[in-house]
């Protein structure tokens, strides 16, 4: 039975990190209906900034981690200001193409630094002995990942539901023209959405980097790995990202734990989430919590 609970715990841990990684997609899509293809690169940049501040500048990691989130917040805001601001009102496909270009530019810039081709790891800062309860163990790194994920998700949920600017962002998401007519600054909302996506990406990068080590290819791949999560959850739903992340995490762990290695099966943890994603999308094409818009003509 402890094996089962261990898989549940691991599934929730992995799922919550998927949710955090996918949050950036949701934040940008929710306000601007744009898919940011360069999200994986921003995750990697966030991790590298944390490393640089910790190891090269010498700051304690509990200072460098939030600092990297703040830096990435402004970095993502600048990216939106420089590359995307002038595309407001242009077809969405044009904006997505720009984010593909942005991905190449960021790739190129990262390859100019040691982070592009070298491997690093954060200096150990957490106890190495895991927390173990009744045969189920969870490492401090994973515990930290879950805590940061749920704190950020709770914060963003509150922000969108209660704060004026959050409500403005939702309004812009619903109808840009109507929002402008009541005095909401659409460009400002877009900038803020990118900035918050940058902040969440830096958090995800720091956590993933702490688990896998800092390897650019591994980190940037999470921009793609979490794509099924946000599709399943519904591209514009924070709650959807959380639920879908945890579903994916649990499916992966259970498939790997109970199917792989039996009946000649292997790698089901990689494939099964996609099969389930396809099945769910057959019945709920907008994802589990995505808004189904009906256009009246």
């Amino acid at each position: 039975m402890s094996y089962f609970f261990q898989l549940v715990v691991s599934g929730i841990v992995v799922g919550s990190i998927y949710a955090l990684s996918g949050l950036g997609f949701v934040l940008i899509y929710k306000s601007s209906r744009v898919l940011n293809i360069a999200h994986g690169q921003i995750i990697a940049i966030g991790a590298f900034i944390t490393y640089a501040l910790t190891v090269w500048v010498g700051l304690p990691i509990y200072v460098s981690f939030p600092m990297s989130m703040i830096i990435t917040f402004f970095l993502a805001m600048s990216v939106e200001r420089v590359f995307l601001r002038r595309l407001i009102g242009e077809p969405i496909i044009s904006v997505i193409m720009v984010t593909i270009g942005l991905m190449s530019i960021l790739d190129g810039l990262i390859y100019l630094t040691p982070f592009g081709t070298e491997n690093f790891s954060f200096p150990p800062f957490l106890p190495t002995t895991p927390i173990a309860i009744g045969g189920v163990s969870i490492s401090w790194t994973q515990m930290l990942g879950v805590t940061v994920t749920f704190s950020l998700i709770a914060g963003f949920s509150w922000f969108f539901k209660k704060s004026t600017i959050g409500i403005s962002m939702r309004a812009v998401s619903d109808d840009q023209l109507a929002s402008m007519s009541i005095g909401i600054s659409v460009p400002r909302v877009f900038g803020l959405a990118w900035a918050m996506a940058g902040l969440s990406a830096a958090a995800a990068g720091g956590i993933i980097g702490n688990i896998t080590g800092l390897n650019f290819d591994t980190l940037q791949a999470f921009g793609i790995v979490v794509f099924p999560v946000v599709i399943l959850g519904g591209l514009d739903s924070i709650l959807g990202a959380v639920v879908a992340g945890i579903i994916m995490g649990l499916i992966q762990q259970f498939a790997s734990g109970y199917l792989d290695g039996n009946w000649g099966l292997n790698g089901t943890g990689e494939v099964l989430p996609y099969i389930i994603l396809l099945v769910i999308l057959l019945f709920k094409p907008h994802g589990l919590f995505g808004i189904h818009e009906i256009e009246r003509v």
Binding site: Y3, Q6, L7, S10, V13, V14, I17, Y18, Q142, I208, I211, T212, T218, A221, F222, V225, Q252, Q253, F254, S256, G257, D260, G261, N266, G267, G269, E270
Partner: peptide, 21 residues
């Protein structure tokens, strides 16, 4: 006993426990 093809795993708990079992 087993040949495991890995993916982009964030957590190998299930695989490791399975192998030990």
């Amino acid at each position: 006993v087993e040949v495991v093809e890995h993916g982009k795993n964030l957590d190998n708990t299930a695989m490791l426990k399975r192998l030990v079992n």
